[in-house]
Design a protein around this nucleic acid. Sequence first.
DNA 1: CCCGGGTATACACCCGGTGTATATCCCTGG
DNA 2: CCAGGGATATACACCGGGTGTATACCCGGG
Lengths: 174, 174
Amino acid sequence: MSVPLTLLGLLEREPSHGYDLKRDYDAFFGRGKPLPYGQVYSTLGRLARDGKVVAGEAEPGDGPERKRYVITETGATEFETWLQEPVAPEPNLQSVLFTKVVLALMLGRDAELYLDTQRAAHLRRMRELTELRRGGALVDSLLADHGLFHLDADLRWIDLTVARLDVLAAEVRG
Amino acid sequence: MSVPLTLLGLLEREPSHGYDLKRDYDAFFGRGKPLPYGQVYSTLGRLARDGKVVAGEAEPGDGPERKRYVITETGATEFETWLQEPVAPEPNLQSVLFTKVVLALMLGRDAELYLDTQRAAHLRRMRELTELRRGGALVDSLLADHGLFHLDADLRWIDLTVARLDVLAAEVRG
DNA sequence: CCCGGGTATACACCCGGTGTATATCCCTGG
DNA sequence: CCAGGGATATACACCGGGTGTATACCCGGG
């Protein structure tokens, strides 16, 4: 999810080290998908190469040596503009669901059967997220709601598509 | 959108060449994001390396030489299993919107202002898609609906989040 | 005759993602 | 007292995906 910019944001709070950045990232944005160490340091390397952060000398710390990364002016302004500008809303109209349905129709497979199993998988996940939603922190609840809304959007699309499968099949063959 | 599997699917229809595959892909799944040539041939190269397709010898065609790619047994079965199994529904609870809101709160920026501009961008895009939806082909209409449903999901989430910004701010600081 | 446009492929490069190796310190147990 | 495991901290190698550019061939028009 745009790891470089997020790390810049964390460095905007205060200078930090790769290891701590990974910890902070996981705490705030990880949500079951922790940031791999490899990615942390390669990303920091690119940010340093592009002059968005500067790496201090290796310092002896509480344990092995560590490098302190500080955000630069250019890094700060880049982060600020990114933060302010809105995300491009659904720019490229593509979805795996759509791809699979079209391919299924193209090859004479049972597209409706596929959509039915997909709907079942969605409903299963919605029950999971509804469960997660109850448990405690607002952050988790908000993320669960985000997922639930989008799953609901998919379900609406699935129903719509099932209702028009025959027309769509004709159009794909045509 | 899982280019390798989609190319396998197109080859399941009939053997073809890289150039024609790119054309077919764009016609059915491109939708304003055409598949770059570079990706076509590197993907075909990996598929050939992994024994999912076999590349014929270079043949003189209508113009320069061309290679004919044929799907193999293993390629066909892999495609079939992919086509049948449902897409993982919202597996990793992360979104750029959420990231930006949390970062904005963390750094004392005006998160509500950001969400307002984001909502405006979404509404603008919804008008565009509603326009696209009217125009002709069912394929376009279905993709527009998919986008519209998901934009609507985002809007619901934005409203929900705005209503709870103060609580969220406290949780992020805490 | 050559040159621009369509056909067709190859190559080089970068980013992101994953896994693994390496080095240092601390603490604990036999 | 010291061997070894766990926590801290970074580096490196590799792969797939994505982008841009180069190359080569053919054909038709001015």
